[in-house]
Design a protein around this nucleic acid. Sequence first.
DNA 1: CGAATATCCGGAACAACATTCCGTTTGTCA
DNA 2: TGACAAACGGAATGTTGTTCCGGATATTCG
Lengths: 206, 206
Amino acid sequence: MKTRGGGKKEISSEAAPSVRADARRNADALLRAALAVFTESGVDAPMRTIAAKAGVGVGTLYRRFPQRSDLIKAIIRRDLDAQVQAASTLAAKHGPGDALALWMGRLVDFVATKRDLGPALHSGDPAYQALPDFVLGQLTPVLRRLLDAAATSGVIRDDVDADELLNAGLRLATPVNGGDAAQARRMVALLTDGLRRSLSVPAVKE
Amino acid sequence: MKTRGGGKKEISSEAAPSVRADARRNADALLRAALAVFTESGVDAPMRTIAAKAGVGVGTLYRRFPQRSDLIKAIIRRDLDAQVQAASTLAAKHGPGDALALWMGRLVDFVATKRDLGPALHSGDPAYQALPDFVLGQLTPVLRRLLDAAATSGVIRDDVDADELLNAGLRLATPVNGGDAAQARRMVALLTDGLRRSLSVPAVKE
DNA sequence: CGAATATCCGGAACAACATTCCGTTTGTCA
DNA sequence: TGACAAACGGAATGTTGTTCCGGATATTCG
């Protein structure tokens, strides 16, 4: 990272065309505060608290991040990018089947690590509406490629949709109350196992 | 159902030792109103709205159902019981493997049918804290029996925990925004497929 | 360097809810 | 019917989301 000033490291990496210095400074402070507050008190923490911790008025907070989800989006951007990148890396180092399985397993690290990210993704709460669109929009194409490759090579069944699998994976990757990531990992692995070309789905009618 | 009075059908089936008549009447009205409001506006609907629809003051609502989750618990009790009963029925009519698969599939009908039940179960919101405990408490033992039977008979792997599987199933059973129950069904089936005694988990390290 | 001005800031103000509390009303029982 | 416990209702209080605008301040330009 090559930033001009020497002080604390910034969170928002992007350069700015013509933003006032204080504005940028405040945006960074807000992101830092939000991360801290979210981690300690969950993503539903009061906006006032975040603004206060950043030493800023709520007006400033709302101007920069009109929706709570904008704050979350900014915070997870890095990790989301990493998850996207991982697809290429894994595809290069492993066979199609393993690459897919490993990428799915990695979802746990992406979701389970950030407190409340999982619940927020699936809450249906309008305040977080933009989150699923954002995350799924980034990850679906990537997963689709892995999935197609694996299906084409014949190691997994070919009747599974990328959207659906991603949704399922993200749900399972969300740790239970108590934060047991290991359990989440096992469940995602179980799901992935179901992908491997099997005999057939038990077609029994109730 | 054998209730004394003839009027509208009651929701709370239980008999009462010595509750004032108006109290019971109000409790029923509240449950009916809550069901209607939840269905139309989601489980986050204002308490005032429910009280109003029941023709009752908020005080009465809070006295009878101190927590929002108490209202939900009362509403889903019937369906939860049905899900519990289904275990015995299925176990009697099908082999261990199919009984398990079918019961898991039935979770979708239990969860996906009641608007917002799924999200509420996994939200982590303290207001719903009691819900997971209640639902899991009822269903876990039942699933454990099905799971043990299937594992013993050798049709599925034996290293899966009932708690974990139930959690996973409930998550997948929750329909995506748009209420596609069919998709939920497919994902649960996929998970169930992963249970069938397979070659082995892909033990590749990243 | 010293205005001029486009930006940005702060926090009071308003609105929507959850939840509590207590004076009043109403069943129930003798 | 009268007395009393049980239940009711809704005003009152506290919390949080969100908006709005007078005031502060970087930046730019002469």
